[in-house]
């Protein structure tokens, strides 16, 4: 059971963090050489799929961690007596990790449910000029906010990873 939970947590976190890293380090630079209309077409589809992937991975990480806590929440390295691992899941790293998880879930939700649809909003050809301008402003604002949020999300995800491996932290997901 411990192995299964540790495996699922590591996998979930890897999918989430790796996805965020791939988007930042692969997709963002590639966008510079593509016409905006085509970026829009790809982003619309990718955003929808990535929202479920990100939320699913975060959800799985939370469920496996809670189940781990339910099992006692300590890392039992039976084959490694020399490791002298302290009791896990105690103190500020756990509180910080939970807070970070909350921030990440909120950011993914905000991007998936609010900002992403707004950034692809369309206005009718016959719309009033003022309405069209307001919609365009909302779209630009959503795109800028998403741009910032994506970077903040990656920074928080990287910090949370550090909390996961801290000796006094949860330690689950520490596949070594």
């Amino acid at each position: 059971m411990r192995v299964a939970l540790g495996f699922l947590f590591t996998l979930a976190w890897a999918v989430y963090l790796g996805g965020a890293l791939a988007m930042e380090l692969v997709w963002r630079p590639v966008q510079r050489d593509i016409p905006p209309s085509q970026i829009g077409a790809m982003c619309r589809w990718m955003g929808r799929r990535y929202r479920w992937l990100g939320l699913g991975a975060l959800g799985l990480a939370a469920v496996t961690w809670l189940a781990w806590r339910g099992l006692g929440g300590t890392v039992l390295l039976a084959s490694r007596p020399a490791a002298a691992v302290p009791p896990a899941a105690s103190g500020w790293p756990v509180a910080a990790m939970v807070a970070c998880w909350g921030c990440l879930a909120a950011m993914v939700l905000a991007m998936g449910v609010l900002l992403h649809p707004r950034s692809h909003a369309r206005w009718r050809a016959g719309a009033h000029a003022a309405d069209a301008a307001a919609a365009r402003r909302r779209k630009v604002r959503a795109l800028r906010t998403m741009d910032v949020l994506l970077r903040v999300e990656l920074a928080v995800a990287l910090s949370t990873t550090a909390l996961v491996v801290l000796p006094s932290g949860p330690r689950i997901g520490w596949a070594a």
Binding site: A14, L17, G18, G19, A22, Y50
Partner: peptide, 18 residues
């Protein structure tokens, strides 16, 4: 953990999203 994330998570994002 970072290496695992880059390899596994990155591959999944490339294969099933991008």
């Amino acid at each position: 953990l970072l290496a695992v994330a880059v390899y596994v998570g990155g591959s999944i994002a490339m294969e099933f999203v991008l």
